[in-house]
């Protein structure tokens, strides 16, 4: 999915701008790392690019569309959050299958594809385990599988490795890049330079403005 932003500004408190005049063009299939210190506005930028937050000023277009709907969230956009949000009492397969129901998949088909996706992220042996019995790294890989199941056009990852050690982080990032299709646009907020290096493009967010590095 191609994303174009024009003059995006955003403030939670009037006059205190978190983002100032952000102009970006992200091409289809591009992988982009957004780097910035904590509190700089990475998550805000991601949520605007993911259509969850309307900017205070400026415009975002996704392909030809001016806004993302709930249907788009269900079918074309995948989110990987900072904290692994899963249904803890449900099995791993059931959690991944959730990402496919919005695309109209039947239960059988969704669980079959979910199992395949779990194989891609290295959790194929844990399909019947409850999500609340998984470790932090396993949980985050589960979320990766859910976000990427169903060939999403846009995946947004908000510091997916922030709470993981270096080795586990690498596993999770491997999973993300392995599971995404070449046409999937990936936007990833991160502190980790090693993670950013694996992306096609790196953006630095400083004082509310975005710079290509």
């Amino acid at each position: 999915m191609r994303i174009v932003t024009k003059g995006i500004c955003h403030a939670y408190v009037p006059g205190s701008w978190v983002l100032k005049d952000v102009n970006l063009t992200i091409e289809v299939g591009e992988t982009v790392a957004i780097m910035a210190p904590s509190g700089a506005g990475k998550t805000t930028l991601l949520s605007i690019l993911g259509g969850l937050t309307n900017p205070s000023a400026g415009r975002v277009t996704w392909g030809e569309a001016q806004r993302l709907t709930q249907r788009d969230l269900a079918t074309t956009v995948g989110w990987i959050f900072q904290t692994a949000n899963v249904l803890g009492t449900r099995t791993t397969v059931e959690n991944v299958a959730l990402g496919l129901y919005g695309q109209g998949a039947s239960r059988q088909k969704a669980e079959s594809r979910a199992s395949d996706m779990l194989g891609v992220v290295g959790l194929d042996h844990m399909g019947r385990r409850r999500a609340n019995s998984l470790s932090g790294g396993e949980l985050q890989r589960l979320v990766v599988a859910r976000a990427l199941a169903g060939a999403r056009a846009l995946v947004l990852a908000d510091e997916p490795t922030a709470q993981l050690d270096a080795a586990t982080s690498e596993t999770v990032v491997d999973a993300i890049f392995r599971a995404r299709k070449s046409t999937t646009t990936l936007l990833m907020a991160t502190h980790d330079p090693a993670v950013a290096e694996r992306c096609d493009r790196r953006l630095d967010l400083r004082n509310g403005q975005v710079f290509d590095v």
Binding site: W62, A65, R67, L68, T69, Q70, R71, D72, A74, T75, L87, T89, R90, E94, Y101, G102, Q103, G104, R107
Partner: peptide
């Protein structure tokens, strides 16, 4: 892009029952 609800009602009901069962 379409604003039509994409999750079928049957799936929502199934999720409802599954949540009750799991809790």
């Amino acid at each position: 892009m379409s604003d039509r609800a994409s999750w079928p009602v049957v799936v929502l009901l199934r999720e409802t029952l599954a949540n009750l069962r799991s809790h």
